[in-house]
Design a protein around this nucleic acid. Structure first.
Lengths: 142, 142
DNA sequence: GCATTACGGACTAATTCGGTCCCTTTTTAA
DNA sequence: TTAAAAAGGGACCGAATTAGTCCGTAATGC
């Protein structure tokens, strides 16, 4: 179906929530307010912290807050934080894996072209956009 | 990792091969020439035929050929043929599935925006582009 | 010191994906 | 008329991912 996986979907939900309420809140609070199960929130927050999209405060009274301004976090950033580098085919990855014949493969250049286009498309929408309510109200979906 | 699945990757390989040799060839021949296992070629051809990307000729001497000009088949078409509609999240799909609250969900409009951008990016590259050899030689991969 | 909270990783269940195989239908040709 | 060649449709299983849970550890505030 060519879709992002559910963890990434959740991650966006959590980040949107954090973009709206800009305070440090515990995973438990965030779980309660978004409806995402606590263990899942924890897991996602770990990876988002690793990438710097959110900052964490440990200890009692600690929690998570957004690491950067919502305007400079793109959908591409969010996807990459959870799923790793955006690479439509294995031959576009950094580590060349199985392909091996990169420099000779006639398709390689084309795939990187497609990949760049997709990455660009994903970078056009920011977290700030996602957090705004209903800006495209009434606009048909395609 | 946000990638197309292997079947789609194969499908592109097969379509590129067909775009180069524009004759009707059996699945067996195509399998032999591309190195993709025969049962897999058959399976992929079935789905590509269903979408009209290739035309089939049944019976002895039959086989498959490209259904349209390579210039008017886009990467988006190829992905959709194998993986179904391009929908990054379940709430963007035709059948609304689990979400249900589409008209109220504040994220729905944003996801369709992202989705449209990605679909557009995938539509910028055609099968003709993919079949051309090494047009971007030397251009850094981004 | 104790309660609270993040951190890191291991682990299991569930789902999806890749691949194979079967039988049926259509067509050509001997 | 029969046999061979080929696509069509679907069932099926094993493998690989993914989702989700749980554990112990480390840090911090009261």
């Amino acid at each position: 179906m060519f879709r992002i996986n559910r963890m990434t979907d959740y991650a966006v939900v959590l980040l949107v929530d954090m973009a709206r309420k800009r305070t440090v809140r515990s995973a438990q609070q965030i779980a309660a307010e978004t409806g995402v199960p606590l263990p899942t929130v924890s897991k996602i927050m770990k990876t988002l912290t690793r990438d710097g999209l959110v900052t964490s405060v440990r200890g009692a009274g600690g929690g998570y807050a957004l690491g950067r301004e919502p305007g400079v976090i793109t959908v591409a950033d969010m996807i990459q934080a959870v799923e790793g580098p955006i690479a439509l085919t294995s031959c576009v990855e950094e580590a060349e894996e199985e392909c091996g014949i990169e420099s000779l493969c006639p398709m390689h250049g084309h795939w990187t072209q497609v990949n760049t286009a997709v990455r660009g498309a994903l970078a056009t929408v920011s977290l700030a956009d996602m957090a705004a309510d209903q800006p495209m109200f009434g606009v048909p979906a395609q």
